[in-house]
Design a protein around this nucleic acid. Structure first.
Length: 597
RNA sequence: CGGGGCGUGGCGCAGCUUGGUAGCGCGGGUGCUUUGGGAGCACUAGGUCGCAGGUUCGAAUCCUGUCGCCCCGACCA
């Protein structure tokens, strides 16, 4: 390909809307163009990158026995109603774009394809003899993100590879899950990016085991906790750890202390000269349910710890056995709307009476009480006295007469000790989620009535797994991980071209001829070469070459009369003057070495 | 959804406070010079100042509305 024919449009200035390096470089290099918020056009260079990622993904998926398909993007609402996700995905902060057709039928634009895949396989597959099946597709997904940002990292329209597997047993599901784990590991290595595999929450997709593949980068939106020995890594949403031991107060009769205006843990500690680990902090929230009366929550946790809302959300969903739209902190205003007396916020204890909820209009009139393990372990602690401006000291759990659930809802943090080995201290880093594998279980097959006949002749729901890779996100994440102050440094396996031939002065017939000759020799060798034949000054060509990040560069310039050129590797300070012939030989060798992993 | 900010040529911005009919840099075109790290000079094209109302003799500028975009927060009292 010739740069003069590439409609290359590089920008000298960074577009104002690009925040992080990868977004800025892709925009400046002319790889992507924003069409609307979170909606991007992939320009020719970008499409070459994406195609390479797609090829790598296809190769590994095919080798793992998965079957490529292409599923519809318009999904009838009824399919999502059957799985119980329509309302959650369309109402409130739901992310599904949805519309009505001319017959007034409701449709959604596919943010993910569990429903469609499950219903199709359910209709198609009859017997255990046909299992397992793993189907996948690579296509555009639509998600109306609350806040699209960072270019392709979180966009509203993006390319995703998603796979859905169907099994006769949980054991067989696990087998495919491990195969996918292996395939994903291969894919990311082939793409030349460094990833960490972490335990993950399965979120609104649902299911049991799930792991994410994270590209480590400081600008990542996810926080990862991992042990230095490499034996444990988890998304903060899922991470577990051992909390540091609390400072204990001595055993003594409970006393009530006046703590005027000492609402926060911080002020309370300062004024009373106590440690935050000696306090039981109480948080009042309300779970907004899809159906029925909303459920107020009374959450107790050790004062120096924070609640992991994802864990909390999951536990409450289990406990109530119904769909929760969101959790929110109870505000004064809501109490007024419910016709309730104000709560003594900042002074609430774990034994706060249910009578506070009596006569609530649309709320349950009993708290669902959750006690975090860290709080449950405390003795002789400090907590609110349930009246304004008063706390109690030296309290024990015998004060709580209400049925309560004691579970781990604590947010793990860097510095905590690991569960698997208490000599290991958790470290944190940031990551960009590029892959996610789930063992779904039978959630979707049950709700969508997708079943097969087992060996005993009995109808049974499929065991299911699902496996995603953000193709477009991966491409940008590769840039985030591989760039310098001059521009992108593409890993060779996903670079839009492998070598750029820069002719320093195109008007010099000797240089032009040598450049063309090298170009014509590389192409038949299967080398993806780009020749910069523009009538530009050398500096412009060098700057552009650095920016768009082609891994290798041949400069044909002042040494052309003697048949010599320069060979430069973008990633290194490497710069070597060679005979054209020797350079071609070396380049072919180097590229073929770099492409085998 | 809440808070903050911005919409002026393809990109980055000034002008707005104090109304008088639009400017700078980059980029584009032509010519000459230059030619190894985003060249110089000259000429040139390109903008209903997001949109709609209003105030005014006159609006990019003031007022109202609206649309779009960006950033922060989705926070433990």
């Amino acid at each position: 390909m010739r740069v003069s024919r590439l409609m290359l449009a590089t920008l000298r200035d960074t577009p104002a809307d690009a925040e992080i390096a990868s977004h800025q470089l892709l925009a400046r290099g002319g790889f992507i163009r924003r069409v609307s918020s979170g909606i991007y056009a992939y320009m020719p260079l970008m499409w070459r990158v994406l195609s390479k990622v797609i090829n790598i993904v296809q190769k590994e998926m095919d080798e793992a026995g998965a079957l490529q398909t292409l599923l519809p993007q318009l999904h009838p609402a009824e399919l999502w109603e059957k799985s119980g996700r329509w309302k959650g995905y369309t109402a409130g902060e739901g992310i599904m774009f949805h519309l009505k057709d001319r017959q007034n039928r409701e449709l959604g634009l596919g943010p993910t394809h569990e429903e469609v895949a499950t219903s199709i396989i359910g209709e198609q597959i009859r017997s255990y003899k046909q299992l397992p099946i793993n189907i996948y597709q690579i296509q555009t997904k639509f998600r109306d993100e609350i806040r699209p940002r960072f270019g392709l990292m979180r966009s509203r329209e993006f390319i995703m590879k998603d796979a859905y597997s169907f099994h006769a047993s949980e054991y067989d599901l696990q087998d495919t899950y491990y195969k996918m784990d292996k395939a994903y590991t291969n894919i990311f290595i082939s793409c030349g990016i460094k990833t960490v595999k972490v335990d993950a929450d399965s979120g609104s997709i649902g299911g049991a085991a799930s792991q994410e593949f994270m590209v480590t980068a400081d600008t990542g939106e996810d926080l990862i906790l991992k042990s230095p020995d490499g034996n444990y890594a988890a998304n903060i949403e899922k991470a577990i750890s051992k909390a540091s031991p609390p400072l204990t107060l001595k055993k003594q009769e409970t006393i009530e202390v006046s703590t005027i205006d000492q609402k926060s843990i911080e002020t309370l500690c300062k004024e009373q000269d106590i440690d935050s680990s000696q306090i039981v902090k109480v948080i009042v929230m309300v779970a907004i349910l899809e159906e029925g009366k909303d459920q107020p929550l009374l959450i107790s946790i050790r004062g120096d710890q924070e609640v992991n809302e994802v864990k909390l959300f999951n536990e409450i969903t289990n406990e109530l056995n119904c769909k929760i739209l969101k959790l929110s902190f109870i505000k004064e205003e809501q109490l007024i709307n419910q016709g309730l007396a104000p709560f003594p916020f900042g002074f609430i204890g774990p034994d706060f009476s249910d009578s506070a909820l009596k006569n609530a209009k649309t709320w349950q009139n009993k708290f669902l009480r959750i006690i975090d393990l860290t709080a449950a372990d405390l003795q002789n602690f400090v907590c609110g006295a349930n009246i304004e401006n008063k706390h109690r000291f030296h309290v024990n759990w015998s004060i709580n007469k209400y049925p309560s659930k004691t579970i781990d809802i604590r947010k793990a943090k860097a510095g905590d000790l690991c569960i698997h080995d208490e000599s290991q201290v958790l470290e944190e880093c940031r990551g960009i989620e590029v892959g996610h594998i789930f063992q779904l279980g039978r959630k979707y097959s049950t709700s969508l009535k997708a079943s097969f006949t087992n060996e005993e002749g009995i109808e049974e729901s499929f065991w299911m797994g699902c496996y995603g890779i953000g193709i477009s996100r991966l491409a940008q994440a590769a840039v985030e991980q591989n760039h310098d102050e001059k521009g992108i440094i593409w890993p060779i396996s996903i670079a839009p071209f492998e070598v750029m031939i820069s002719i320093a002065n195109i008007q010099d017939p000797i240089q032009a001829a040598l450049g063309e000759k090298i170009y014509k020799q590389l192409i038949p060798q299967g080398i993806e070469a780009l020749i910069d034949d523009r009538n530009e000054r050398a500096g412009v060509k060098f700057k552009d070459a650095d920016l768009i990040g082609i891994p290798w560069r041949i400069v044909v310039g002042r040494d052309a009369p003697s048949g010599k050129i320069e060979l430069i590797e973008r990633a290194k300070a490497f710069n070597e003057v060679l005979d054209a012939k020797a350079a071609i030989k070396k380049l072919i060798e180097e590229i073929s070495n770099q492409k085998t992993f």
